[in-house]
Amino acid sequence: MKEPLLFVKDLHAWYGDSHILQGISLSVWQGRASAILGRNGAGKTTALKTIMGLIQRHSGLVRLGTLRLDELPAYRVARAGVAYVPEARGVFPSLTVQENLTVSARPTQGDWSIERVFDTFPRLAERRGHKGKWLSGGEQQMLAIARALMTNGRLLMLDDPTEGLAPNIVEELNNLLRDLLDDGLSLLLVEQNFEFATNLSNEIYVLGKGRVQWSGSASDLIANGDVTRTWLGV
């Protein structure tokens, strides 16, 4: 198989003295989705944050294409092409929908513009003048994804995007992410929703106690009752 777009090797991270990530390795390929699954506290969110450059104390290799990311500050990682949808969306409450979209936009780097976003998310176009804090949970999730797309990155990292969403919105999100994959975007997904993740992703990494306990294809994971029982409790 050709070189991965995102390559992570032996990544460690610490919060104070607690050793949260204890050497994880994973890859994401161009136009494909990888998912990180695991119980609460397994280190999933920390993994994304460390890749993003948000965790001070860390070691290991993170590469996007040929570029080393692991020593860069978060804003440089973002500019290098990593788009991030954080846990709980992180919509800016005091900025309007339009400002949320434009404040971090890098329109010259790709083809996501405000027009295309409003075309794809008509609901956001209707609410463009509203402050972020007045949006519903589903709207906030759409805004967080649209905002990340406006940075025109090559890799989209989503932290638990289905959390708290109604089933019909989860379905909508699934279709949207499929379209993005068809467009050639790559995804790295952290999920609690087993079905949603296995349905979208090609590669799955099961995290437990700060390490990758199992990795393989979605269909292999579904067939492997031991792994899902021990590490996911499904």
């Binding site: 804003y75 973002a78 500019r79 991030y84 954080p86 800016f92 404040v103 971090s104 890098r106």
Partner: peptide, 8 residues
Amino acid sequence: EVAMSLGL
């Protein structure tokens, strides 16, 4: 944190 991770 979110602002930085969007490239600001």
